[in-house]
Amino acid sequence: MNSIYYLNDRILGHLDSTRKVKSFLWKLMYKRIKNKMNTSLINPINIKKIIFNKHHINGLNYNAPLPTVFIQRSASWYLGDDEKEYYVPLSIGFTNDKIRFEVVLIDGEVDLRNVQITKSGINNKHNPMLLVKNLKILELCFELLLEHLEKEENEKKEEDRT
């Protein structure tokens, strides 16, 4: 699974992966998502709980609408084939065969991204999350993942006691 790349170590917000604005409508739709994020489970504390959990190294599968999860545990700089440096942030990717959402954490700020999936596979072009229905799917997956990890943690504690 490829990580998404940023041109620098700042969140993109309503911009696409090339740091361009596609339309005024994007700004308005993104503002709705940001307002809903204020009350969401998707926050820096819960993101860190998932990224730095002790039981899964890179990813896992669990019962959710987007069942495959990939975790980028460390932020780094990457030298691309075009001799430019790109930033790979801490992130959690939720995917199935049709869609992929990334929850990115940069300097304590959350950036939600839709990653394009082409017929040849996933590429690194990503846009902001703009649809509330996508946010609801992502929130459900995030909540189920937190519950899954908490259940595993409790089972591990029970094993250690016996």
Rank of each mutant, 00 (worst) to 15 (best):
L12R: 05
G13D: 04
G13C: 02
G13E: 03
L15S: 00
L15C: 01
S17H: 11
T18H: 01
T18R: 05
T18A: 03
R19D: 03
R19C: 01
V21M: 08
V21D: 02
F24G: 09
W26L: 02
K27T: 08
L28C: 12
M29W: 12
M29P: 00
Y30F: 14
K31D: 15
K31Q: 15
K31C: 09
R32N: 13
R32V: 07
I33T: 03
K34T: 10
N35Y: 12
N35S: 13
K36A: 11
M37Y: 03
N38Q: 14
N38C: 01
T39I: 03
T39E: 09
S40L: 06
S40P: 04
S40G: 04
N43Y: 01
N43Q: 05
I45F: 06
K49E: 07
K49A: 01
I50G: 03
I50F: 09
I50W: 11
I51N: 06
I51G: 01
K54P: 04
K54F: 12
H55D: 08
H55I: 13
H56A: 06
N58K: 09
N58P: 00
N58W: 10
N58E: 11
G59Q: 05
L60K: 12
N61G: 05
Y62R: 10
Y62Q: 07
Y62S: 10
Y62P: 06
N63Y: 06
N63A: 05
A64T: 04
P67I: 07
T68P: 00
T68Y: 11
T68I: 11
V69I: 14
V69D: 02
V69S: 02
V69L: 07
F70W: 06
I71C: 07
Q72E: 14
Q72K: 11
R73I: 08
R73L: 12
S74K: 15
S74Y: 13
S74N: 14
A75I: 11
A75S: 15
S76K: 15
W77I: 13
L79G: 08
L79A: 11
L79V: 12
G80S: 08
G80R: 04
D82T: 02
D82W: 00
E83S: 14
K84N: 13
E85Q: 13
E85P: 00
Y87H: 12
Y87V: 11
V88N: 07
P89W: 02
P89M: 05
P89E: 04
P89G: 05
S91I: 07
